[in-house]
Nucleic acid binder design. Structure first.
Lengths: 262, 262
DNA sequence: CCACCAACTAGACCATCGATCCGGTTTGCG
DNA sequence: CGCAAACCGGATCGATGGTCTAGTTGGTGG
């Protein structure tokens, strides 16, 4: 039965907001990935029509931009100030890897330092802590948190080919520049550039591999071990966290070398 | 007039091949970008119907995978063997930047070393050329060529979030591993990982900026200079080539430091 | 108390896309 | 000659991002 009398007198007004849209988009992305985010599905989850979304948002890209910036919001900047250099012995390959956030979440704001482990892998570590203070600790912490946040939302990797102009992304970048300047880099551009590019590339590569079933890919390469012997022998174990930390150590050491030699 | 008699007796059989498809896809991508590559448009350029493409290719992703691997084919490995360390003084911001290949081309196989310039930016360069030989020269050359090839086809940046399992990409990765092993890295994984991730991230970031009209983005940031002072002051000049080389120098120096200290 | 307007909503609709179905045609080869 | 694999294309399917039209709701100023 559906007539004027049986219906609610006032449809409970929805009060849709940008915040609700973005939060729901994040959940949808975490659960089903970027390929399944459509305006219709998003609207359905918000219990409205797709048209309504376009009242708050100009295009679908807006939604994606907002969602991506929301990921950066998870990177906490506080408590990074007194981060030590993080150079305890490097342990096994513990937690934190990809495929974490899938399934619900909704809980943003979780600290980004969940899986911190030692890094730097014991090379030239005790070097120049003279003039610049220990600038590497906070910078390393920022990069780890950056990476961890992106890995917690693997869909973000596919969105990194767009300008990161959201307030949260900019705030983190500003923090990075500040730290580098304080450490004594008069031209921090190259340092910030290489660090953030390294993180972006690392996340993309890891998500790519993990999405495409590492086992199969490994088999594929092993079968072709004749053609690519070095790659097949040394490139197939994926201790993602340790490898990332080691590479980050290379970068930081090279930067410190340049900073100190002045 | 169109009847049985006026028509060619034998329609000149098309002989569509994967190679032709990929070559045409590359041209289309160079001219119009990844967003405008559709199976229909590609088929039209090949003077056939979209259905026919699916005889040679399973999905559109196949086309993109093939096109991306074809970009790696442009990275020449010969002449990289005796590459010097490339440490002449670093000059201005010459050629090679993005938006190069647009408009025709079709000419694959062009050498990737078009815009080589000095790099490393004069830091700890003369260090450990003892045991490992000058491994940095060829590696640096490979990374530069890698980047240059991707920048010559800016659309490739948006495709880097997929497994690079094509023969050309694998061959270059194998070359990188070989070089690193020969240089004395017993576990070259982290070095190869960080180098290739750095290149990927750099290309993605540069293409992103150049696609979104650098001037506008600069204004956007300058307007917000109050909120992001360090970023606005140090992050807005884009000498892409020099910045890339400097960051690459950091990585190589850090790696050399680890290699030598053993 | 009412007029008005911004905020909000739904459904039909449009062009386009990747992909498939179906019904063919052409070629090489035995 | 006949057959099977290769090749071809129009029609079509389901889905998408986005717009158009035609409303409904709630708050505010008069």
């Amino acid at each position: 039965m559906d007539n004027v009398w049986s219906r609610d007198r006032k449809a409970p007004r929805q009060r849709l907001t940008l915040e609700r849209i973005v939060a729901e988009a994040l959940e949808l992305l975490d659960e089903e990935g970027v390929g399944r985010l459509t305006m219709r599905r998003l609207a359905e989850r918000l219990d409205t029509g797709s048209t309504t979304l376009y009242w708050h948002v100009k295009t679908k890209d807006d939604v994606l931009d907002l969602a991506l910036d929301a990921v950066f919001r998870e990177v906490r900047l506080d408590a990074l100030e007194h981060e030590n250099t993080g150079l305890d012995a490097h342990g096994g390959s513990a937690g934190l890897g990809g495929s974490a956030a899938r399934g619900g979440s909704g809980g943003l704001g979780g600290t980004a330092r969940s899986g911190e482990r030692g890094g730097g892998v014991g090379l030239g570590s005790g070097v120049g802590v003279g003039s610049g203070g220990d600038w590497r600790g906070p910078v390393r912490g920022l990069m780890r948190g950056w990476r961890a946040a992106l890995l917690r939302h693997p869909w973000s990797a596919a969105l990194l080919d767009r300008p990161l102009m959201g307030p949260n992304a900019l705030e983190r970048t500003e923090f990075l520049y500040e730290r580098l300047i304080a450490a004594g880099f008069t031209a921090p551009k190259a340092a910030a550039y290489s660090l953030s590019n390294y993180v972006m590339g690392s996340v993309i590569m890891q998500v790519t591999w993990q999405d495409s079933d590492e086992a199969d890919t490994g088999d594929f390469l092993r079968e072709r071990g004749g053609r690519y012997p070095a790659l097949a022998e040394h490139g197939l174990d994926h201790e993602w966290d340790a490898t990332f930390d080691e590479g980050l150590g290379y970068l930081l050491d090279g930067m410190e070398q340049s900073r100190a030699g002045r």
